[in-house]
Design a protein around this nucleic acid. Sequence first.
DNA 1: GATGTGG
DNA 2: CCACATCAACGCCAT
DNA 3: ATGGCG
Length: 320
Amino acid sequence: MARRQVDEVRDGVELTSLDAEAFDGAGVTKRALLDHLDAVAELLLPALADRPLSVVRARPGQAPFMQKNLPRGAPDWIPTVDVWAESSQRTVHYPLCHDRRTLLWFGNQRAVEFHPTLVPHGATTTGELVIDLDPPDGAGFERVVAAAHPVRAALAELGLAAAVKTSGATGLHLVVPLSEQLPIDDAFAATRAVCARAAALAPDIATTAFIRDDRGGRVFLDPTRAGGATLAAPYSPRARPSLPVSFPLTWDELDGASPADFTVGTVAGLLDGRPTWSELRPAPAALQEVLLTEGRAIPVPRVAAMHEGKRRKRARERGA
DNA sequence: GATGTGG
DNA sequence: CCACATCAACGCCAT
DNA sequence: ATGGCG
Ligand SMILES: [Mn+2]
Ligand SMILES: [Mn+2]
């Protein structure tokens, strides 16, 4: 007799508390989360393959939290990769999620968001760029869509094409396949350059300003998503009311889309006959050298942000 | 959710 | 045995 | 060791 109540066993994984709300304010049950993960497993797993996985877990009575280490007590059939974390001076044991039962196990842990790294473990090059569009708080979805168009235009001007998905939260993710592998440093530079070009095309609706106060209500083209950074995977739910899901769209669908239509309650029923994220990926294209030259000349934005933060803090302390 | 504590 | 507390992240890099 | 940000 196990002490805890097991509601169901799927793929050998014991699932618990399935009829409870997924987390405070979720508005859907933990069962809905598990059923969604099960329904999209075949589409989600390829995006997680060989990538150190971070998850956001959300439990009733607590704020959601990011988890990188595979916790002690996890089943030994979940593989991990060790990554040295410079900032904390320790080894992080990242899980790899390669099969349905691992996905279900995480779901039972109330892992709601799945954030793989942008490059597989051990890779030193990448075959794609990612453009992450983050609208300001409270902005309607049309605003991010409006910002996506100049990004697409900037890419087109360079002979590049992108697939697009909702982030599941408020923004959009664009993925640009490349015909040649690019060293990760170069991917950072190229991403900075694409974001800068797009912001220049539409300076009133998009910006690359890292400091929120400097964005002036514009959509943030986040030039830091490359290399070991993480991104919410396609078909991953998000820890928000109704558990909206990161959902791939065609460019034709984008303008009329509303991200609230894609949730753990609806996505399973929308998949039939739709192109998948892999199928929406355009043909790889060659990256022009000029993009690297441009990008290398753009400073890493976070550095400037750090100084600005220190300056403000000093000013505050002096004035007080 | 899992683990460790101490009553 | 149960009740309860505690935990579950990173990097960017100049100063 | 910090700072802002995702
Ligand atoms: Mn984003
Ligand atoms: Mn972002």
